[in-house]
């Protein structure tokens, strides 16, 4: 049921990617995403896809799981591809000409490029970040990276704490929702009623208890935190102190190499075209 929804989708493990510092991984993902959009020809896009596959291999996560994560975005990918095929116009003769519908070679090329881009984007960033970094470590990393903003009086720590708590409570609330749905079903509640208003009404028996319990939990948590003298960021030490290591340096070196190769491959095609 609801429990099958995996949010965050962290798979624990001890691969090279798992052991990288979260800050490194966040920066690498940013670099990766930008580079994905830099790539603009067959060579560099193929290289992107290869990189994504290498990353999967490095993470030690089975290809099956990675493929499953693509399923939900399949519709988006197909949609983008179709739009590209039908709406791209170019000056050469169309491959197919059915009156209103004209398909050009350029359209198909664009569609394929788009598919490769989206695929490598999703695979690369999920393997690099969400699959191999636990949500808590991730928030830690974000907090540290955003630390300079504190000088501008941005409450970085508070945001990070809010995110940590939110992430922590997702599974709890999902479980709770499951329980409430079962309990209301046992009282004969039907969730298959017709009409928008009735449908919304049918969800009240779930939403109200869920909100009540969320507020109750928030209240309890606040009291528990206060009892342990939580006062925000000031003078707070960490259980896990983030530390860069040689692995991170290697990762950064590879990412620079990665950008260079993509730029180089982009150049090759221009050279070939000339």
């Amino acid at each position: 049921m609801l429990k099958d929804i995996t949010l965050g989708q962290y798979f624990s493990g001890d691969s090279a990617l798992h052991r990288l510092d979260p800050r490194t991984k966040i920066i690498l993902v940013l670099i990766y995403v930008v580079t994905v959009f830099l790539a603009k020809n067959l060579f560099s896009l193929t290289f992107l896809l290869v990189t994504a596959i290498v990353l999967v291999a490095l993470s030690g996560i089975s290809a099956k799981i990675v493929l499953r994560s693509i399923k939900p975005v399949m519709i988006l990918i197909i949609f983008t591809a179709v739009i590209n095929i039908f709406l791209t116009t170019s000056t050469d003769a169309p491959l197919i000409n059915w009156g209103v519908i004209k398909i050009y070679k350029q359209g198909i090329v664009n569609a394929v490029f788009m598919i490769v881009r989206i695929l490598s984007l999703i695979i690369g960033s999920s393997v690099l970040l969400t699959y191999t970094t636990s949500p808590i470590t991730l928030t830690d990393g974000i907090e540290r990276l955003l630390k300079p903003l504190k000088k501008l009086h941005v409450p970085v720590h508070d945001f990070a704490m809010m995110m940590t708590i939110a992430l922590r409570f997702i599974p709890t609330l999902l479980e709770e929702t499951d329980k409430i749905i079962s309990a209301q079903k046992a009282r004969g509640a039907g969730f298959d009623s017709k009409g928008l208003v009735n449908k919304a009404k049918a969800f009240l028996p779930i939403l109200i208890p869920l909100f009540v319990s969320a507020f109750r939990r928030a209240d309890e948590l606040a009291v528990a935190m206060e009892c342990r003298c939580y006062r925000g960021d000031e003078g707070r030490t960490r259980m896990r102190v983030l530390k860069y290591s040689s692995k991170d340096a290697v990762a950064f070196a590879f990412s620079v190499l990665f950008i260079l190769v993509v730029v180089l491959l982009n150049g090759i095609s221009t050279a070939l075209a000339i």
Binding site: A183, A186, P205, I208, P209, V212
Partner: peptide
């Protein structure tokens, strides 16, 4: 259910008890 008090949702006690029979 266990801890059934967490499934209450209606505005009044009467309406909450009546939820099951109303569904019938």
């Amino acid at each position: 259910f266990q801890y059934p008090e967490y499934q209450l949702f209606e505005e009044t006690v009467w309406r909450d008890i009546a939820f099951g029979p109303s569904n019938m």
